Simulated scan of single mutants.
Amino acid sequence: MVEIKTPEQIAKMREAGLVVAAIHAATREAAVPGSTTKDLDEVARKVIAEHGAKSNFLGYGGFPATICTSVNEVVVHGIPDDKTVLKDGDIISIDAGAIIDGWHGDAAYTAFVGSGHAPELVELSRVTEESMWAGIAAVKKGNKLIDVSRAIESYIRRQPRPATGKYGIVEDYGGHGIGSEMHMDPHLLNYVDKRRMLGRHNPKLVPGFCLAIEPMVSLGTPRTEVLEDDWTVITTDGSWSSHWEHSVALTENGPLVLTMPDGGKAKLAEYGVTTAPDPLG
């Protein structure tokens, strides 16, 4: 069952989303050569405490940290520790969440550590991020969930191929509903699979519908494996990957990106989409 939110509940999710945005800003500044992924986790913990929020990652299914820190070939769910030291040229996905009064926010971004990154890595992150925005722009009344998947995949497929030969759209992980829990129905594929998107798996988008849209793209295979810690997900061929995510609510007045400071207004304007008014003013 898809949880449909009231305007008041979306306002609470907006509060949580702005805490996530603050985590992103602080960890982006801290993701420098020589810092450890545990350092970044401590930064996130401090931001959450300062905002009077709770972490929705810490303890989730036994996860031992406040954020996920996924470096290079790690796609998602990397566990922060004091052994992983960031180096010049690394890329890292930082996935963060927060809870305000029982309502969740969740978003991720890919950061470049230091300087001198290969052009194909810069392009990989751009393609992944833009495919997310294409998916967000498809969150509108009258569309179905498959239209979001199609927008994400279509954007990626239209891009020039990288030197490695292809972009791999990760198959085993995707976006999800969000609200009174971090992960809820429906599951959102980042590609179109009509066999898996039938009936209740392809709901119509209506006001009150909230999604976390998160494409994961590699410079090689779409296939992944989980390491012995039961969390860390890597590409099976060792290719580096990018991960971007935002939580978005569909309202009577259009979409609102809950985890962006401006609600997604500037970016969605590029797609000719007008965002809903911010319920927090």
Rank of each mutant, 00 (worst) to 15 (best):
M1R: 07
P7I: 15
E8L: 15
Q9V: 12
A11E: 14
E15A: 14
A16M: 03
L18M: 11
I23N: 03
I23M: 14
A25F: 08
T27D: 03
T27W: 05
P33F: 14
S35N: 01
K38V: 00
K38Y: 01
E42Q: 00
K46F: 00
K46N: 00
V47W: 08
I48Q: 00
A49Y: 00
E50K: 00
K54G: 04
S55G: 00
N56E: 01
L58Q: 04
G59I: 12
G62H: 08
T69Y: 03
T69W: 02
S70Q: 09
V71L: 07
N72W: 07
V74M: 10
V76Q: 02
H77C: 11
H77Y: 14
P80M: 09
D81T: 02
D82Y: 00
V85M: 02
L86P: 00
L86A: 06
K87S: 11
D88Y: 01
I91F: 04
I94K: 01
I94M: 07
D95Q: 02
A96T: 04
A98F: 04
I100G: 02
G102P: 01
G105V: 08
G105I: 03
D106M: 02
Y109A: 13
A111M: 11
V113G: 07
G114P: 04
S115A: 15
G116K: 14
A118T: 11
P119C: 15
E120T: 09
E123Y: 11
E123A: 12
T128W: 06
T128E: 04
T128F: 07
E130R: 04
M132H: 01
A134G: 06
A134E: 07
I136T: 09
K141H: 11
N143D: 05
K144V: 14
K144T: 12
I146M: 14
V148F: 12
V148D: 11
E153D: 06
I156H: 04
I156Q: 03
R157Q: 13
R157K: 14
P162I: 07
P162A: 05
G168T: 04
G168I: 05
E171K: 05
I178G: 03
I178T: 10
H183C: 05
P186L: 14
L188C: 09
L188G: 08
L189T: 07
R195C: 02
M197Q: 15
L198D: 07
N202R: 07
P203D: 13
K204V: 13
P207C: 13
F209W: 10
C210Q: 11
L211E: 05
E214G: 13
S218Y: 05
G220S: 09
T221K: 01
T224I: 09
L227A: 12
E228K: 13
D230V: 11
D230H: 13
W231Q: 12
T232Y: 10
T232C: 11
V233L: 12
T236Y: 01
G238V: 10
G238K: 05
W240R: 09
S241D: 02
H243A: 04
H243K: 04
W244P: 00
W244E: 04
E245Y: 02
H246N: 09
H246W: 08
S247P: 01
A249Y: 13
T251Q: 13
E252R: 13
E252K: 14
G254D: 08
G254I: 12
V257K: 10
D262V: 06
G263H: 07
G264F: 12
A266W: 11
E270L: 15
Y271W: 14
G272H: 06
T274N: 13
T274P: 04
T274A: 15
T274E: 15
T274C: 11
